[in-house]
Amino acid sequence: MIELPRTIYDDIVRHASEGGKEEVCGVLAGDRGTDGDPSVVTRRYEAENVAETPRTRYLITPEEQLELIERIEADGLDVVGFYHSHPTGPARPSETDAAQAAWPDHSYVICALDGHPFVGSWRWRGDGSGFEQETVALRSGQ
């Protein structure tokens, strides 16, 4: 399970909507749950999507990713996972998402915008089993 404050959930939807037909992306930080404990997101860090085909892919440069990780750690937080948008769906990880996932036991949050905005989350298992859908629990406040 991943716990998102309502404000961060709304910020992800807003960021995705602002991206229009291009995917947006960012890093989620807080307390990464292990051994069945939920991950708790307390902050969201937007990143620039530098993919060659941003309508169907997202990519954070290694330099920006390192900078964001250092900021997260300096803030005393853990990397919980990543988020990105699927402007035209699907409301689940794509084959490309699975091929590029590189952070085992971290959450990959997707905001799909085809129809009503949908925010779902999947943990990358990295053991060959792929993504496992997890419950998104909304919390009030930050």
Rank of each mutant, 00 (worst) to 15 (best):
E132Q: 12
A98Q: 15
V13F: 06
S140E: 14
R57D: 15
A112V: 01
T42M: 00
V41G: 03
I72M: 04
G120P: 03
R57A: 15
D35T: 09
R55F: 11
D105I: 03
D78C: 11
N49K: 01
G76F: 03
H86N: 09
A99E: 10
M1I: 08
R139H: 13
D10M: 08
V27Y: 01
I110G: 02
G30H: 04
V24Q: 10
T135I: 11
S17E: 15
A112K: 00
I2P: 07
D105R: 12
G36S: 03
S85N: 07
A112T: 02
G89N: 02
Y108K: 05
V109E: 01
D37C: 06
A112E: 08
L66D: 15
V119K: 00
R6H: 06
D78K: 09
F131N: 07
L4H: 04
Y58A: 11
A99F: 11
E73D: 12
D105C: 08
V79N: 03
A74Y: 07
A98P: 09
S39I: 00
P93T: 09
A102I: 00
T61W: 05
E3P: 04
S121D: 08
Y83K: 02
R6V: 15
A47C: 12
G76Y: 03
D35I: 03
A99K: 15
T56A: 14
P90N: 09
A91G: 13
E3M: 12
S85Q: 08
C25K: 01
G89Y: 01
Q100K: 14
L59M: 12
H116P: 10
D75H: 10
E70F: 04
R92D: 08
P90R: 10
L59D: 03
V40P: 00
A112S: 15
D97H: 11
V24A: 04
R32A: 14
R71S: 13
L28C: 04
E22P: 00
Q100C: 10
T96A: 14
I110W: 01
L138C: 07
P54R: 05
E3F: 11
G115S: 00
E18N: 12
G30V: 03
A91D: 12
L66S: 15
R57K: 13
E63I: 05
E63H: 10
E22V: 12
T96I: 15
E95W: 13
G20L: 07
